[in-house]
Write a protein that binds this DNA or RNA. Structure first.
Length: 279
DNA sequence: CTCCAGGTTGTGT
DNA sequence: ACACAACATGGA
């Protein structure tokens, strides 16, 4: 019946709550493209795909016509118990890990992550979310919902149109950035070391050290990076017993934390960010 | 009115 | 290499 109209069938799959806390995962700042309908019902958008999440007693029901994509998206294969047990060997991490124990790092769409985190610079989450919603609504394809604009669609957007959706002074950077992105073959990035990719990213308009690290973590799923923003600065001062006379730069904080958490830095960052922001 | 928000950039030393 | 003001915008 549905096939006649070339509509993919909506599938439902379940995720045990041991595996993930969807509320924590969506609200910890890594993703801007979701909506909370009721306390137990969320809609998540990624690129041109959509999933609806229903919280039940002991599991979540995920309804989507891209179930394969979202099974990967929620990062269900990674052994977070192992990661958390390793991290809490550091006493400082015990509370943050306990507080955000259901957080998973989502495997998001690369272009969406890049554009989203350029919007995030010197901005607040409420405004970022609103701007990105308007971006999808005004420039994304509609197929029951508004998809994130493709690179081709993004490259049609003018500086003024970016200003209209609240991008502010980032509008110039975004237009430049998108032009640069169209000339990049990201498939070769997979084989590069993290520092190499970061250097390439930092050459792009609107991308500095922190946004580059976010792209690494949320777009490339590299966990040997540590995005240091205002909240990590606060967490660092509050939780780590460092000399108070010295004022630590973000570069120094990043280096200190990566040396401490190594290839688990990205996970540690999410726990600390979430703890500092929401506790 | 001033300060802040998941910072980056250009310019100065 | 590091420091620092300027940069839109809406909310507190």
């Amino acid at each position: 019946m549905l096939e006649k109209f070339n509509v993919k069938k909506i599938e439902i799959f379940k995720i045990n709550k041991e595996k993930i806390n969807v509320v924590q995962t969506l609200k910890c700042g890594q993703i801007f493209s979701y909506r909370q309908i009721t306390p137990k019902n969320f809609v998540v958008f990624s690129a041109d795909k959509k999933a609806e999440v229903f919280e039940k007693e002991k599991h979540y029901e995920i309804a989507s016509n891209n179930s394969v994509y979202f099974k990967n998206f929620f990062d269900l294969e990674t052994d977070y118990e192992k990661i958390k047990n390793e991290l809490i060997k550091d006493e400082i991490m015990i509370e943050p890990v306990k507080f955000g124990s259901g957080i998973r790092i989502l495997k998001q769409n690369l272009i969406e992550v890049i554009i989203s985190f350029v919007f995030s610079a010197n901005n607040n989450i409420k405004r970022i979310t609103e701007s990105l919603f308007l971006l999808r609504k005004k420039f994304g394809s509609f197929n029951g919902f508004f998809a994130f604009p493709t690179l081709t669609q993004l490259s049609q957007i003018s500086e003024n149109e970016f200003k209209e959706i609240g991008a502010g002074y980032r509008s110039v950077q975004l237009v430049k950035l998108i032009r640069q992105l169209t000339k990049i073959d990201f498939s070769v990035f997979e084989n590069l070391g993290s520092e190499e990719i970061i250097n390439k990213l930092k050459n792009l308009s609107g991308i500095g050290s922190k946004v580059a690290d976010c792209i690494m973590l949320f777009g490339f799923n590299r966990t040997d990076v540590f995005p240091v923003d205002i909240w990590i600065e606060k967490a660092f001062v509050n939780l780590f017993k460092v000399k108070k006379e010295k004022t630590w730069s973000r570069v120094e904080i990043r280096k200190f934390l990566i040396k401490r958490y190594k290839n688990l830095s990205g996970y540690a960052q999410q726990y600390l960010f979430n703890y500092q922001r929401n506790f």
